[in-house]
Structures are given as C-alpha cells and as structure tokens.
C-alpha cells in the first residue's frame, strides 16, 4: 500500500522556527532541531524547512541549522528559501538536505530546473509553485499582443494582473463556460507573473522537477481548507507527485485534499505547531476515512 504523505513545515528565520509555535514539552519551542525530532517521533513522513531570512547572515545560519537538523533525522528533508543557483543547492545538499525547493528563481530562469536535475537528479528537485485564482474564463494561452481597439475590459485585465503585455491571455470566447484558472505568483505572492499555473506545472515536470510543492495563495493562512480544485487540476496535469499546501485547519481538510484533491502529499505548519492535532492523531483520522497512510 502506497501511502499519502504528511509533511510538517518549519518556517525558519535566522536559525529559529518563527511561525505559530506552541509546542509543549520542549525546552526551546523555536529550535528547529528539537521540533524536527519531535515531528519525526510523531510519525511525520518528511520535513520541509523554508528559510525566510532576508540577510546574508541569516543564510549562513541556515547552513548550520540544516546540518544540525539533518544529523539525527532519518526521514527525507527538503530545504527551500532563496535557492537561486546550482551552487546554492549544492551547499544545502552538502549540509544534509535531501531535496531542495526552488520557486521564484525557477520562474525567472526555468533552465535552472534542468541544471539542478542534471547535477543532483530529479529526486532532489522540488519546484514550489504559488498559485492564485484569476476568476477569469477559460483562456487561450498563446502570446497574443494587446493591440489598440480591444475592449476596455481586456485592457483593464492586463493592468489588473500587472503582466507583460506579451503574456496577456485572451478569453477563447465570451460564451465559453467559465473554468477556474490559476496564475503563478512569485516573491511570496507579491508579484503576479502572468503564467498559467497548470501550464507551468507541466513545464517544470518536463524540465526535470521531481515533485511540485503547490501552495494556494487564496487558501494560505485561512485555515479554511486546501484548494482541492486547484490541487486536483495540477495533480492530474503532471506525472510527478504534487504536495498540497495552504489552508489546512483541521483533519477533515487533509481527508478532502487526498480524496477529492488527488494530492500525493499534504504540507502544513500552524496546525501541527499547536498540539490539538499531532501528526499521529491526524494519520489515525485519515486511516478511518480510507486514506492510505503510514502508521
């Protein structure tokens, strides 16, 4: 039985876990090493560490943190945040990370995905995709030019999404049934790219990504549930595993994203940092709901 994976995420800054920590029975709740061990004991299938340090000093601390976390961890560890080059990845993998996650740099220089896959193997390359709903009708994704004479609404849309004119996507026809689309955003959701998320997912798989870490920017932080529609669309679009992220608030949300969203794995931060839901209790719940999990 192949199991769906539950992946706690440690958001780290300057060597400390920073997001919503309230773990009991730990000497130091913000220490990534202690949290990693606690999650490992609780039955986590993997761990993801995302570094949100802005400074170079913070990055140096990250290497030390990865080394410390990896030393006693015998489940897969993925590290992301600020990975831009093969050299960045090399340092993280050398420090004991098993996979690296790359996001903005992959959008800006897609060829880096192939370089990473060639150097370290696809299994080490996780491409993180942050996607936001556009609420636009089904669109033609050719690189059409916006010319004078187009309707005001089309022009307004191009401005709304702040995309280069050459990437503007036209509705096939105004009569086409509205299907949800998602746009890739970068720099932590602050920058729209004009890229269709489903197409981008196919592209990164072709370029050699081993997995996709998919975050719904609409659901992220709401604790109101994963975006199952987005997850299912992306999961069916690519032959590689999709890790759903953003919106986990209770165990039912995980059941939904596996049963309805076709997710291969689900990632969450806050829900595990509060001990109301441990990885173990979540897995028991999922097993009762018929989701295959490792217990």
């Amino acid at each position: 039985m192949f199991a769906k994976r539950i992946i706690p995420c440690l958001d780290c800054k300057d060597g400390r876990v920073v997001k919503g920590i309230r773990f009991l029975n730990l000497r130091d709740a913000g220490d990534p090493g202690e949290l990693a061990e606690a999650y490992n004991r609780a039955g986590a299938d993997e761990l993801v560490m995302l570094d949100i340090s802005a400074s170079r000093e913070g990055r140096a601390t990250l290497m030390e943190t990865v080394t410390r976390v990896a030393r006693k961890l015998f489940i897969p560890l993925t590290v992301g945040g600020g990975v831009r080059t093969v050299e960045d990845a090399q340092r993280l993998l050398g420090a004991g990370s098993d996979k690296i996650a790359i996001n903005t740099a992959a959008v800006e220089h897609p060829e880096v995905i192939s370089e990473l896959a060639a150097q370290f193997g696809s299994q080490a390359v996780v491409v993180a995709i942050d996607a936001r709903r556009t609420h636009a009708p089904k669109v033609e994704t050719g690189n059409l030019k916006l010319e004078d004479g187009k309707s005001k609404s089309e022009k307004r849309k191009a401005t709304d999404y702040d995309v280069p004119v050459s990437n503007f996507q036209f509705p096939v026809s105004s009569a086409a049934p509205a299907a949800p689309r998602w746009e890739v955003v970068t720099y932590g959701g602050s920058r729209p790219t004009g890229l269709d998320a489903e197409r981008w997912a196919r592209r990164v798989a072709e370029l050699g990504a081993g997995e996709i870490l998919l975050t719904s920017m609409d659901a992220d932080g709401t604790q109101a549930g994963f975006d199952c529609e987005l997850t299912a669309t992306m999961s069916h679009a690519v032959p590689i595993p999709v890790i759903a992220s953003g919106g986990a608030g209770n165990p039912e949300h995980f059941a939904e994203v596996f049963l309805r969203g076709a997710a291969d794995a689900a990632l969450a931060a806050s829900i595990f940092h509060f001990e109301t839901h441990t990885v173990r209790s979540l897995k028991r719940f999922l097993r009762e709901r018929g989701v295959p999990v490792r217990i």
Binding site: M1, D45, G210, P241
Partner: peptide, 13 residues
C-alpha cells in the same frame, strides 16, 4: 508503467 505516478516517491509497504 504510467498507471501510477512515476517516479514512485514516498512510503510503501
């Protein structure tokens, strides 16, 4: 075969 996702990444029995 492409019946499942390839590569197999994850925990199996």
């Amino acid at each position: 075969k492409a019946l499942e996702k390839v590569p197999q990444i994850g925990w199996n029995q």
